[in-house]
């Protein structure tokens, strides 16, 4: 489903070249539950951004469902992102002036779904994530766990094949973090490919496939 071959991402910082990703080869079949771990600066976030088409590799080929997506234009990549990839961030990234329901509705608006259908789909997702009574609340009025659930609902409303989570529990306490993880695993059981980037050993070890990174390279890859 996801196939990275020889992917590199170099930055120049001053006169120094930083090798965030150094000739990475990685195949992720559909429906996998994968964790990426490693120290800060090991390139795990860059890997996630490349898979999520937020960043372009310096060299290498990225096949998503057997299509070469590295060669696509900015607008085409946006469309792939919209339809195939969901993002979850450590700091949730909810739009503060929109209510929970409106935040969840955003991808549908971007996709051009008609309003009546949007309302129905948002209602379904709110139910699935147990947020019905929080629908009209703004992010400031929600707890951390609720915010991350809203973010997950938003990331999954278009039923993406791949869900990318960057430290999804990083800003949450243990209990609410566990709830969020349970929600992610529920999605994985539903057939979604889930890729989690984390520092948290406990969270990382729950994944079925664990990747360790250091200095832009994959060190270990165990199932």
């Amino acid at each position: 489903m996801i196939s990275l071959s020889n992917i590199s991402r170099f930055f120049t910082m001053g006169d120094q070249e930083v090798r965030a990703l150094n000739h990475i080869n990685l195949d992720i079949p559909g429906g996998e539950y994968l964790s990426v771990m490693g120290p800060s600066g090991s390139g795990k976030s860059t890997l996630l951004n490349i898979i999520g088409l937020l960043d372009r590799p310096t060299s290498g080929t990225y096949l998503l469902e057997n299509h070469n997506v590295t060669a696509l234009s900015e607008a085409e990549q946006a469309k792939v992102r919209r339809e195939h990839i969901g993002f979850i961030f450590q700091s949730f990234h909810l739009v503060p002036r929109l209510t929970a329901a409106e935040n969840i509705e955003l991808p549908l608006i971007l996709e051009g779904v008609p309003p009546a259908e949007r309302k129905a789909r948002v209602a379904t997702v709110l139910e699935e994530t147990d947020l019905m009574d929080r629908a009209t609340h703004r992010p400031a009025e929600l707890s951390g766990g609720q915010r991350q659930r809203v973010a997950i609902a938003r990331a999954t409303i278009l039923k993406p094949a791949v869900l990318l989570a960057d430290e999804p529990t990083g800003n949450l306490d243990h209990k609410t973090g566990a709830e969020v993880v349970a929600l992610l695993e529920k999605l994985h059981h539903g057939g979604t490919t889930v890729i989690v980037v984390t520092h948290d050993r406990e969270l990382g070890n729950r994944a079925h496939r664990k990747i360790q990174m250091r200095d832009g390279e994959i060190v270990t890859d165990e199932k």
């Binding site: 937020l54 900015e74 607008a75 946006a78 992102r81 919209r82 993002f87 990234h93 991808p107 971007l110």
Partner: peptide
């Protein structure tokens, strides 16, 4: 950050 988010959600530069 909001603009970054919209892009992550699949908004094009044109949007």
């Amino acid at each position: 950050a909001e603009i970054g988010l919209l892009k992550a959600l699949g908004a094009t530069g044109k949007d």
